[in-house]
Amino acid sequence: MRTTAIKVFSFYRDGFAGMTVGKSLWKIIIIKLVVMFAVLKLFFFPNFLKHNFETDEQRANHVLEQITRQVADNN
């Protein structure tokens, strides 16, 4: 078990160490994920229903209100 774990660890360590173009790609992936999750998601793409309502019942009521609003307006 321990030997297998060491082998797997070495496999990944050597793989990452031996990368050429892969190093630049990993940098791009990390920067991209940071920008997406720590900037875009956090500040620009909040989940509207999770952010504004506490329970599923409130969310359901809000959506139901939205989709029947036309009828309410006409009345």
């Binding site: 790609l25 990993w26 875009l40 989940n47 229903l49």
Partner: peptide, 22 residues
Amino acid sequence: AIGVATGIILEFEFGTNWSNYS
């Protein structure tokens, strides 16, 4: 590597811009 996770933005948009639909 460049393309991975670009689809995640679509998921963000579901929650933010298309919440009724979502």
